[in-house]
């Protein structure tokens, strides 16, 4: 995994962000991941402009159970391909988590983030520094910090290969 520290702005979301809010059903027939970022968060109240205004390097920051609902991988692609380097959340819904790992997309489980968001300790536009190796998240704007858990070994092996499909391809090639 990339050892360098990442810097970017925070886009902050609440608990239980479902997959329809991240990537709506309406666009499910789209199969090209590169075309998916334009629809990200279109249905999330107050974040309708996310797709237009997100800059590569910006972070998605959320509370508990991020990505609950459908099994659609579009909800991972629309952020990954949109240049969001990592999603930070208190917890992830099971299928979203697996989809992220299987696409080599880093997600961090961050204790206290749900309450931190409610208390305004991270708000939209805050400048964050994220150290993926240690899991430390520093809010440079508000001078606060959070700590995320790095992924487990098994998942890390898949992540390091760039995701499940590249991982298998490499095995098949051998």
């Amino acid at each position: 995994m990339d050892q360098k520290k990442l810097r970017g702005r925070a886009w902050v979301f609440e608990d239980n962000v479902d997959t329809d809010l991240i990537y709506h059903n309406k666009y499910l027939a789209e199969t090209d991941p590169k075309k998916m970022p334009q629809f990200a968060f279109e249905y999330y109240p107050g974040k309708e402009k996310f797709a237009k205004e997100v800059k590569p390097g910006d972070f998605v920051v959320a509370g508990r159970n991020f990505g609950c609902g459908s099994s659609r991988e579009h909800a991972v692609y629309c952020l990954k391909e949109g240049g969001v380097p990592v999603v930070l959340a208190e917890s992830f819904a099971r299928i979203y988590y697996r989809n992220a790992i299987n696409n080599g997309y880093p997600v961090l489980f961050v204790k206290g983030l749900s309450q931190g968001i409610k208390d305004g300790k991270i708000v939209d536009g805050d400048e964050l520094e994220v150290d993926l190796a240690t899991g430390t998240i520093t809010n440079l704007t508000q001078k606060t910090s959070f700590h995320g858990d790095a992924v487990a070994d098994l998942e890390n092996e898949i992540m390091t290969a760039g995701g499940l499909i590249p991982y298998l391809k490499a095995q098949v090639a051998q």
């Binding site: 659609r72 991988e73 299928i95 697996r98 989809n99 499940l164 499909i165």
Partner: peptide, 27 residues
């Protein structure tokens, strides 16, 4: 599909997964 968990009504261990993972399972 996420609602694959329904088959537990007939006693199966049944769960939803994403597309990449399904492609890997087929292979």
């Amino acid at each position: 599909d996420s609602h694959t968990c329904m088959y537990g009504a007939l006693g199966a261990f049944s769960t939803g997964i994403g597309r990449s993972e399904m492609a890997a399972a087929w292979a």
